[in-house]
Design a protein around this nucleic acid. Structure first.
Lengths: 343, 343
DNA sequence: TTGGTGGCCAAAAACGTTTTAATGGCCTTG
DNA sequence: CAAGGCCATTAAAACGTTTTTGGCCACCAA
């Protein structure tokens, strides 16, 4: 039996009493083991195990002035892209002894606000966030509180802030020029709200590709803006496109969820992909390869994004003086599959 | 300008001084607004806004003895099933003013242990967990600390504990009898580790269905146990089955991830689904409908699972005397699609 | 022996909130 | 008019750590 007494928790004081040392020494065993004589240390550790002591995180946070938790605010935890990012964050944070508080904004400004408030109350050590819009003021409120912020999947605009992102303009260009390569002359761009930077950048990239091919973006690139970026929205986009008459030769969806939904809508309407219309998505989620027609996509290093963002954040927190802010930008990668197979 | 001073945080004391009241009164405004005269209250609230005060959660937790966070420990955050559950948890918790600390065990006992430790340190108000094995001792350690635990997707064995689950035996029976209905005489059951209750129960259900059809489960139901439950494992299972010679008439996968991977493996090997082999998955994740051959599956009320589990947990925490423990069991639902279309 | 040095530990203050007991003022009631 | 009771508020203690300060002791060199 090595369990402590049921119901009540055991404090550092009781450990100290039992081990015949002062509470300060127990604290040192916990936080600066090298500063205490090895004999005393092992005695204290023994008692800690016997009594089942676990440090009261709140007391520690209160006194030390900072916690061992970080906040993670994402736009849509239902999107495998963010799930992968979250997995990377979780793993790295866990390795470094930090807990992760999850906030899912669902693209809702109010929910995001509420989550930020919770993070502030919890006095998270730092914050990882994929901002749902471009308004930097809200983040400044957090930063003013002394909480480090690292932007995820969003380049930082200021030099005193870290960020980890993937070049969406390049990605958009890759997608569109791949479609042009397969013979398309007109491209539909199915996107979420154009207030979202990613959607905007990917469109810019697509425009560049179209222009580089000597076409007029205004004519060759038709934008279909949807209010959401999930499969349902994709399916509605398909219906909308079909109802609208003449289909473009190819369609570029701003993420794979949209693409999968759109693919489904197309197939249900009796259209063939890529024969009637070619299709490419974005993110290369696991399911892209397993869909009805395997989906071409733009791959991003998602898990890595989460890991590195966390690493940067905790470096900034734990080594504030030596920390060098970085804005890391990865390059995406084209993954061609059936949905863009040349006719 | 309504922002507080940069860098340093403002405490309840400064609010009190500024408003000309005592700290205790500010605390009352925060926690028992009805106990303070409305004039004083609005004055304090005004100052709170002006100074940008936000409560120090740790101090509050330390003194009050309990926090406003709950822990959520899942087996695989990459699985849309758990993502849906997490979304339900997050939404409900957020509505009730609680933050959610996420722990992803990846089915790893050590990671789960580490997460539980973090939860204990953070003094979470309660814990939602999908246990990765049947060993109840670890949970008892948590419960002994006075932390309420609600089991998610797992029926509780003890009457003094809440749980929310879906009947997996029924689900397994539904799946298998559906396969038998489509004309299968032999069924392959592709599953994760049989130490996992869900995998075990679904097999039991399948056995019942096979037996009810007058067949011998030992011959008609061939179990293929994989170490993981993701798409990759599914694909390997396909290779294994194909390499093993004679295929069963139909395959029942213990979840959709396995099924999607297996489907891919089958198609790549030139086999047709459902013509050469019928296929049904489990969970009915969003992607099941969008796969190469749309996937039949067993649907579970995932989001609801998360919401209700959270509701039960917080009721237990906030109303310990009136709370009645419940073991809720939902029924799953068959969703038939192309992958089990009768030849 | 003496003065200095360094290692190890104890004592006590502090972190920001919640909560309990006490206070004063006002209203009601006899 | 006095006594009692209620309401709004305050003062102060407490929660469990961390951290700073200082003290004791052993050891070494002069």
């Amino acid at each position: 039996m090595t369990t402590g007494s049921a119901g009540s928790t055991v404090s550092i004081k009781e450990v100290a009493a039992q081990a015949g040392v002062s509470p300060g020494t127990v604290s040192n065993v916990l936080n600066r083991p090298h500063k205490v004589a090895s004999e005393t240390r092992s005695r204290v550790e023994q008692v800690i195990r016997e009594l089942g002591f676990v440090r009261h995180g709140s007391a520690s946070t209160l006194r030390a002035g900072h916690s061992r938790t970080i906040g993670l605010s994402v736009i849509d935890i239902g999107n495998p892209f963010f799930t992968d990012v979250a997995a990377g964050v979780e793993d790295m944070a866990s390795e470094l002894g930090y807990a992760v508080i999850l906030g899912n904004s669902s693209g809702d400004r109010v929910k995001e606000e509420r989550n930020l408030r919770v993070f502030a109350e919890q006095r998270v050590r730092g914050l990882l966030i994929t901002p749902s819009d471009e308004d930097p003021r809200r983040l400044d409120v957090i930063r003013d509180r002394g909480i480090s912020v690292v932007l995820v999947d969003h380049p930082a605009h200021r030099p005193d802030q870290c960020s980890v992102a993937v070049n969406d303009i390049t990605g958009g260009r890759m997608a569109a020029s791949h479609l042009l390569d397969t013979g398309a002359a007109t491209i539909g761009y199915v996107t979420g709200p154009l207030t979202i930077r990613q959607c905007l950048d990917r469109r810019s990239g697509a425009e560049q590709a179209v222009a580089a091919a000597g076409l007029d973006p205004a004519r060759a690139l038709k934008v279909v803006e949807m209010p959401a970026m999930n499969a349902k929205a994709g399916q509605r986009a398909a219906e909308k496109l079909i109802a609208g008459g003449r289909l473009p030769d190819a369609i570029f969806c701003a993420n794979d969820l949209l693409a999968l939904g759109l693919l489904r809508g197309m197939l249900q309407a009796g259209l063939r992909v890529p024969d009637d219309v070619a299709l490419i998505g974005y993110d290369d989620i696991d399911f892209a390869a397993a869909s009805a027609v395997s989906l071409s996509s733009i791959r991003q290093p998602t898990y890595k994004l989460g890991r590195i963002a966390t690493e940067l954040l905790l470096d900034e927190c734990d080594n504030p003086e030596s920390h060098a802010h970085q804005q890391i930008m990865f390059q995406p990668e084209l993954v061609a599959r059936e949905s863009t197979r040349r006719a």
